[in-house]
Design a protein around this nucleic acid. Sequence first.
DNA 1: TTGATATTTGAAAGCGCTTTCAATAAACAA
DNA 2: TTGTTTATTGAAAGCGCTTTCAAATATCAA
Lengths: 337, 337
Amino acid sequence: MNDRATTTLDQVARQAGVSPSTVSRILNGTAKVSDAKRARVEAAIAALNYRPNVMAQNLARGRSMTVGVVTQDIASPFYSESLKGIEAALADTGYAPLFVSGHWNEADEIERVALLVDRRVDGLIVLTGMLPDEILLETAERVPLVVTGRQLAAPRVFSLDIDHEAGAHTATLYLIGLGHRRIAHLAGVQGHPDARARLAGYRRALDDAGIAYDETLVVDAQFNEEGGVAAIEQLLERRTAFTAVFAANDQSATGARLALYRRGIAVPEQVSLVGFDDLPGSLYCTPPLTTVRQPAYQIGRTAALALLEMMDGKPAPELSLSVELVVRESACAYSQP
Amino acid sequence: MNDRATTTLDQVARQAGVSPSTVSRILNGTAKVSDAKRARVEAAIAALNYRPNVMAQNLARGRSMTVGVVTQDIASPFYSESLKGIEAALADTGYAPLFVSGHWNEADEIERVALLVDRRVDGLIVLTGMLPDEILLETAERVPLVVTGRQLAAPRVFSLDIDHEAGAHTATLYLIGLGHRRIAHLAGVQGHPDARARLAGYRRALDDAGIAYDETLVVDAQFNEEGGVAAIEQLLERRTAFTAVFAANDQSATGARLALYRRGIAVPEQVSLVGFDDLPGSLYCTPPLTTVRQPAYQIGRTAALALLEMMDGKPAPELSLSVELVVRESACAYSQP
DNA sequence: TTGATATTTGAAAGCGCTTTCAATAAACAA
DNA sequence: TTGTTTATTGAAAGCGCTTTCAAATATCAA
């Protein structure tokens, strides 16, 4: 019947001939209400097509039923998988995720976090990013926090990181096992913690195999396709021989693959290629990319589940996520030319 | 000094020795306030580290400063570009986007929209999806609406669509111009409006060139990589000859490219391939994919800008977005075998 | 000066809910 | 029956802000 000018709880109460408190109790199941009244109220709700005003509920309850999620780029193929995991874990909990992007820029991130805190999010998830630990710690005093991609020990903080070093170690060792000795490494962005860890894994694998580290085989690269292209070109200019490439992430591996294609270098026949992340698209590269699988979706999901626990006042759960090498077709045994 | 237990506007007022109204006026610039008081209030705000409670503001103002965005899959490479556009357009307007996913499922979408309406979003953007027009129209009575991927004429509704038919027509004509006569079409999901329009463009191009439509060359495909793989396999089983493939979107084109690779069919030497969308990754396929560029980012951005206008009470702006063929390396002239 | 007009301020009433507290009604034991 | 205990209910006070309205003060013309 009614429509415009949304109906309020008071109207429902009046229509049903009960007090607002009673309507509220029925809505929230906060107390027993006689069947007679319940029926009248439910009829009124239906008749008026009443829907509670979430903003008002939030204010009264002092909770926003919102969790803030700081990502770097909402369109990133890697992080958007995590967002999906967060979304899935939060579905039907009453909490809605509020996604904001920091654009790999500390100032932006700080601003976004402030924005989220102002909106009184009940919890916060920070996916990697550039925020200094102190800011995170400070923020954690106002709101339960889950942070990925780093270790941060503090009350009301849950951090969730995978072992990048081990992943890189495995990948490199795999290439070595295939007979490769001259393995180039696209090392990601200088100073990025993930990049550092992956380089360390690469070096340890070489060490393990008694292969000398050759810095002419290592080149920095942006963590995107363009970075991969540029890195390969740089490598080729150096005229160092290499029979395999281990890229610090799949996007740069994809760029590398294209650059090799452009030079007429066959993958994997002439150069083997291994990535890191296992993006959804990596399965559909030509050839499908052998890579270290980072469970992005699970990371998001786990982060959200942990946050839910913390928002419930429970301690953060103990959980660990592991990386694994997924062997596809972009790397093969080295064959003496 | 103070920290825990967030400080309120009343506390600021007390500390500054003014009334809450005055503080509010300073915060919002709603009225002139004497310099003396302004200074005292600003000092108090700084001293107490006061930040307004957005929930309370929202309730009092009757606006949530939030816009709902319904997408289908937050990790979709295509739609996430649009989300990015929305995010960019909304940045620094005070509005925050609330992203929800419908998963290409009408029931889910209906539920999500209800959720957003309950949260009292000030505006709503629906990116394509399966919602029936009636529901959209009904929703538009409660909140300004922007919808992409369809035409919907109604007050407080802005619809934004690109010409899929024309795009497909251009792509197909391009292939014909290259000398191809047997052009297969991966037609997307049966019944999907975009799929229908693109098929129509394909047919019209054939018509224009006087090429008879051959239904053995057309095969349905999911709009993802797997769909492309399956479609090519199906096509190959049919044993119909073809020298080019026009895929209804880039993801299925990518799948197609992999399936061809698996069968040892070279792209573009033996089969030319054209997609639709121009996903960010399509530039890095091997070979880079020739495709019809759909300005996903612009679509999102434009949608958000239009919504801002509407939320301001202004009429929806008139705007049109165009598609264009971007020629890369996955298609080449047909050479008599 | 004085009266009229324009400015700056504060009191108080919401915004639409939740929740405490006390009153009323129902159920029980003695 | 009557006094207790327990289960339902409603009144009212918030939640933290905005905004109307009227009072208080300042400004101006005469």
